[in-house]
C-alpha cells in the first residue's frame, strides 16, 4: 500500500510538473507564527490585482491565520513578462500551541482555547498542503528572531526533500533589531531576500525573485 501510494503520488507530481505551464503555480507562503505571512500575502495581492482584496486579516497576535487562504491568478509583471501564481497564505507552523499565550493579549479564556484549537487544525492543514498542493514555497521569517529553530529546520528540510523551489524572505527589516545576516547564515544553501512587507521595503526585489523562482 505504501509503495503504491508513493508511486501514485510521484506520478501525480510528475504529471503536475508536465502540465505546469497550463496553469498557474501554486505558491505557499510558509513560516512560523507572526512572521508576517499574511501581511506579505495581502501586499502581493494588493499590488497585483485590480480589486486588491485582502487575503486575510493581519494581527500582532500569533495564529491570526488559522485556515489556509488562497488568492488565485495573481499576475505579476516583470521585464515585460507576466508570471501568474496562486498565492496560498498558510497558518504559522509550530510544534506547540498553548492558549495561555493568547491570554496575554486580553483574550477571554474560552476564546483563547478555541483559537488554540483552530490554530492546531491550521497547522495540520498547512502541513497537508505542503505535502499535496503547493508547487513552490515562499518561506517568511521574522528577521528579529532567531531563525535556528526546529520548525524552520524541519520545514526547510521537507521543502528541500520535495525539490520544491523555495525563496527565503527575511521580513520586518524596518525593525531595529532585525538581522538579515543571521538568516543568511542559518540557510546558506538558499538565497535570502530582505524586506518589510508592512512598509513595502524592497518589494521590487521580492517580485523579481518570485518571477525568477516560480515563473
Amino acid at each position: 500500500m505504501g509503495l503504491i501510494t508513493n508511486l501514485r503520488s510521484s506520478i501525480s507530481r510528475a504529471a503536475s510538473t508536465l502540465f505546469a505551464d497550463a496553469e498557474p503555480k501554486r505558491i505557499g507562503i510558509y513560516g512560523p507564527p507572526n512572521a508576517g505571512k499574511t501581511t506579505l500575502a495581502n501586499r502581493i495581492v494588493r499590488d497585483w490585482t485590480e480589486h486588491g482584496d485582502a487575503v486575510g486579516p493581519e494581527s500582532h497576535i500569533p495564529h491570526e491565520t488559522r485556515r489556509a487562504r488562497r488568492k488565485e491568478n495573481v499576475e505579476i509583471e516583470r521585464d515585460g513578462k507576466t508570471v501568474t501564481i496562486d498565492v496560498v497564505d498558510t497558518p504559522g507552523v509550530t510544534t506547540k500551541v498553548d492558549y495561555t499565550e493568547f491570554l496575554e493579549h486580553d483574550m477571554e479564556e474560552d476564546d483563547a482555547v478555541r483559537r488554540s484549537r483552530e490554530a492546531t487544525e491550521g497547522v495540520a492543514e498547512a502541513m497537508h498542503w505542503l505535502r499535496e498542493d503547493v508547487d513552490g514555497v515562499i518561506y517568511v521569517l521574522d528577521a528579529t528572531q532567531d531563525p535556528f529553530t526546529q520548525v524552520n529546520t524541519m520545514l526547510i528540510g521537507i521543502i528541500e526533500s520535495q525539490d520544491l523551489p523555495v525563496l527565503i524572505l527575511a521580513n520586518k527589516i524596518d525593525l531595529e533589531d532585525a538581522s538579515v545576516q543571521r538568516i543568511r547564515n542559518a540557510f546558506p544553501q538558499h538565497e535570502t531576500i530582505p524586506l518589510s512587507a508592512l512598509e513595502g521595503d524592497n518589494m521590487d526585489e521580492v517580485y523579481d525573485k518570485i518571477a525568477e523562482y516560480f515563473g
Partner: peptide, 10 residues
C-alpha cells in the same frame, strides 16, 4: 487548548 504537534507525522 494546549497541543503538541508532530510536524513530520502530520
Amino acid at each position: 487548548g494546549q497541543y503538541e504537534l508532530n510536524l513530520m507525522e502530520l
